[in-house]
Design a protein around this nucleic acid. Structure first.
Length: 325
DNA sequence: AAGGGGCACAACCGCCGTAAA
DNA sequence: TTTTACGGCGGTTGTGCCCCT
């Protein structure tokens, strides 16, 4: 007896999210934090199933997400990580903090697959050598999975033990790759960049809102009524009240990131689980990434030589004596 | 200018692991 | 121990946009 789908309730809305729904969801999460998704629809009045709310948040609304324009660096990372991990998009996404697994998956399916196929056309062995799906034994896949799980567990342990080191031991990534939301009160140095993503998200949200509003035949009074929302300060506000579709203009609902008197903002620090634990494993103290990057961009190493080589590189969670920690 | 095809991406579907009752 | 429900994940689909003819 299979479990019934969570979204077969009558009256559950499907399809694209409207800006109004986004704002309701964002406002709710800003006040309560992500999690307890089953309570979101009932508490917000959204006619969406909990799963839909979670996906909308994690794939689109969550601060710190970069969209589009994958850099060469990211592209190479994805290609190599896909070769290492297979289609474990969540695991791959953990190495690209600003990207969602959905984004990476889409990018892989629409861009990289074709790209690699082209390359494969030139060199018939290229893809076969990279893709685990073509590997003859399942043992290799099992080992990779185990390695990844060990790695994930290690990350979780590191997080638990060294939350206070969150910003000190970031891996040797390009700055753009460590763009988690950071509470200004805890790390002012990062405020300008860390806010950008979230602000961008919200600004985008508002831009699409304004666009859709201008397209629609709603009267201004209707728009005012329907689009009103509670900002983080608890005030009823509306974009029609002088708010513009810019990042600056949307600061009022910027998740309290810029508000030191908003206790909720504490939830958005890297030191707790609000965002990092939600989808992105912490990269703090993630020694393997630097090593991995070295490997990824080492032209010689880029020629995948075999599972043993890969496993050795992936076994960075081992100490000098080869014991896992 | 029109429309057909391809592309990009948001969202849905279904399965799995797990925790709670 | 079994059942139920939730959160997470990967695969797939739907839709809007863009480009080419």
């Amino acid at each position: 007896m299979g479990r019934p789908p969570c979204c077969d309730k009558v009256g559950v809305k499907k399809g694209p999210w409207t800006p109004e729904e986004d704002i309701v969801l964002v406002t709710y999460i800003q006040n309560h934090g992500p999690g307890n998704w089953r309570g979101v629809p009932s508490n917000t009045g959204l006619l969406r199933c909990s799963k839909s709310c979670r996906l909308r948040w994690t794939n689109y609304l969550r601060p710190g997400i970069k969209r589009g324009n994958f850099s060469d660096h990211e592209e190479k990372m994805i290609i190599h990580l896909q070769a290492l991990l297979g289609n474990r998009w969540a695991a791959i996404a953990s190495y690209l903090p600003e990207r969602t697994d959905n984004d990476i998956k889409n990018y892989w399916n629409t861009h990289l697959k074709k790209k690699l196929r082209k390359v494969q056309g030139q060199d018939g062995h290229f893809l076969e050598g990279l893709s685990p799906s073509s590997q003859s034994t399942s043992k290799g896949q099992w080992e990779r999975r185990l390695q990844t799980d060990i790695h994930t567990a290690k990350q979780a342990l590191c997080e638990a033990l060294s939350l206070d080191k969150s910003t000190n031991n970031l891996p040797d990534l390009k700055p753009s790759n460590v763009n988690y939301p950071v509470c200004p009160s805890t790390d002012p140095a990062q405020s300008s960049t860390t806010y950008a993503s979230s602000t961008d998200n919200i600004a985008r949200l508002l831009q699409s809102w304004m666009k859709s509003s201008s397209k629609s035949s709603q009267t201004s009074s209707e728009i005012t009524t329907q689009n009103s929302f509670y900002n983080p300060m608890g005030n009823l506000s509306s974009p029609s009240e002088g708010t513009t579709a810019t990042a600056e203009g949307f600061d009022s609902i910027n998740f309290c990131f810029s508000s030191s008197n908003c206790d909720e903002a504490r939830n958005f620090t890297p030191g707790n689980a609000l965002f990092r634990h939600e989808r992105k494993p912490n990269l703090d103290n993630q020694v393997p990434l630097t090593f991995l990057e070295n490997w990824l961009f080492d032209d010689g190493a880029a020629q995948v030589e075999g599972d043993d080589h890969l496993m050795m590189d992936l076994s960075l969670g081992e100490d000098d004596h080869g014991t896992l920690f």
